[in-house]
Simulated scan of single mutants.
Amino acid sequence: MEQSERTALLGGTFTPIHNGHRALLHKAFQTASHDGGGDGHVIVGLTSTPLATQTRSDPTHANMLGSFEERRENLDAELDRMDDAYTASYEIIQLEDTRGPAATREEIDALVVSPEAKAQRRAYELNQQRVDAGLGPLEIHTPPFVVAEDGSRISSTRIRNGEMDIHGRILE
């Protein structure tokens, strides 16, 4: 990649892919795509199955996520649908730990994170780790929550529980 290209990074399990995920993905493409030299690049870290099991508040929910390969295929199809609207390219990598490449790769410019307090705290801690390691801090970009019909945020857990669909429509 050219030095002038911007690289944005985000990560997650992305299952099922819902409108909240789409907002994060669009923010990553918007952040990486810019006027000037270079087209930009988006790195999407897809959580490995072992990491997904480790990071669930209820580890039994990991069984509901589907295989890594299936999640990767679905994510790739989603990214293919949206990347024509942007100049940035993308790649999907497997995340084996919660920090991923954001902690060590110098060429990353921005981290796209959910507005959830836990995600914001992790982004702050990650930037502190980068500074401690002699790397520059990342720009943090956060799209707003996407809300469901009932005014609460759309969440994968609520979708898997059958409370809403991927667009936030409340199910009976």
Rank of each mutant, 00 (worst) to 15 (best):
M1G: 08
M1T: 06
Q3K: 15
E5M: 10
L10P: 02
G11H: 03
P16N: 06
H18T: 05
N19T: 10
N19C: 11
H21D: 04
L24K: 06
L24D: 06
Q30V: 00
H34I: 03
H34V: 03
G38C: 11
D39Q: 15
D39M: 14
V42A: 00
I43V: 11
I43F: 04
G45W: 02
L46C: 09
T49C: 07
P50V: 00
P50E: 04
Q54L: 14
Q54R: 15
S57M: 11
S57K: 12
D58E: 15
P59I: 11
T60C: 04
T60N: 11
H61T: 15
L75I: 13
L79T: 03
R81A: 14
D83K: 01
D83N: 02
D84P: 00
Y86R: 02
T87E: 08
S89D: 11
Y90I: 08
E91V: 05
I92Y: 03
I92D: 07
Q94I: 02
L95N: 05
T98D: 08
A102V: 09
A102S: 13
A102D: 08
R105L: 15
E106R: 10
A110N: 06
V113G: 06
P115E: 09
A117T: 14
A117Y: 10
A119F: 02
R121T: 14
A123T: 00
N127R: 07
Q128H: 10
R130H: 01
G136F: 12
L138S: 03
L138G: 04
L138Y: 06
E139P: 07
I140V: 13
V147N: 13
G151T: 02
S152N: 12
S152C: 06
R153W: 05
I154H: 01
R158H: 04
I159K: 01
I159G: 01
D165H: 12
I166R: 08
R169K: 15
R169A: 15
L171C: 12
L171I: 14
L171M: 14
